[in-house]
Design a protein around this nucleic acid. Structure first.
Lengths: 158, 158
DNA sequence: ACACTGGCTAAGGCAGGCAGAAGTCAGCTA
DNA sequence: TAGCTGACTTCTGCCTGCCTTAGCCAGTGT
């Protein structure tokens, strides 16, 4: 009963290859900092304005400015000008499809923290609006089976 | 068609509360660094020895030592002495249940990178050993519906 | 007795994440 | 015209992550 995956084909043994194109590493190049991921959390909560990001994430304004700029450059957020009647032009940051697609990462982190780092199972709950059932993140195969890490084979693609 | 979740009950409006017990933030306190998550990746690939972690992750030995020590302290890995016949006692690092449970986070990061950061859909593929079907990570509710971030209500627990 | 290997630790230094305080600038409001 | 607000930028400085180089120690092999 191991938790490791099983390497197959050209990937076995592990000592015979380098994880050069590893997309976990590439993803971490984009969102490795705490502030970046917490800004993304806020974006999912509906925050759009500069000051709100800084305050709600609990980071200083210089850091918020730097992180928001990087996230826009990377295409996870987009900055739009908007204008309410009788107001000056303002900016808002909104999730792009690329940014919105990061949601499972945040939920996976939240669920792990709920289970292992909070004595009451976490402060908030996600429910499916249509049916009211709680939402979680899971691994499953295309045939619909729920899968644990120990039941997975890893192969080189293509 | 929004990608944000909908805040409900005491969570609405967002300006009325602080994410103090946020378990995303707590998780990031444990595994916010690139090196920590890549060490966990290697642990899932079956790596157990100090030198192998350092080389395969591509980090220096001092960093590997610091990160492994932290991950053991946090309970994600455990260090065991073992001895092969005719060999001296060695150490190995193995996943604990807490560490193994982090797997969905890594898969979510990998899948996101596969989709958005690699022109060929990622270098490796995960398949369910029993049925040979590809494995992915997804959000779904307890009733089995696949759910997108825009279809989720967030409520305070308890 | 000696070198070798695995698993580290120590010292020095660079780069980047972060905070706090203060300044800038445009445009609306009084 | 003067002030206010939102959205930043600038400056200073700490702290951490990381690198490189070098050294340590225990147990094996020769």
């Amino acid at each position: 009963m191991t938790s490791t995956v099983r390497l197959t084909g050209a990937l076995e043994p592990r000592s015979g290859w380098k994880a050069e194109r590893c997309t976990i590493a590439k993803s971490l190049d984009v969102v490795s900092t705490r502030s970046a991921l917490l800004i993304m959390r806020e974006a999912f909560y509906g925050t759009t304005r500069f000051d709100d990001f800084a305050e709600r994430v609990g980071i200083s304004e210089p850091v918020a400015a730097a992180r928001l700029r990087e996230l826009v450059e990377e295409g996870l957020l987009e900055r739009e000008d908007y204008r309410e009647p009788g107001q000056r032009t303002r900016q808002q940051y909104r999730l792009t499809p690329k940014g919105a697609d990061l949601f499972p990462v945040l939920v996976a982190l939240m669920k792990w923290g709920d289970r292992w780092l909070d004595d009451r199972g976490g402060p908030i709950e996600l429910v499916h609006r249509d049916c009211g059932e709680p939402v979680s993140v899971s691994l499953h195969c295309a045939a619909g089976h729920e899968v644990a890490s120990g039941e997975i084979d890893v192969a080189r693609r293509g």
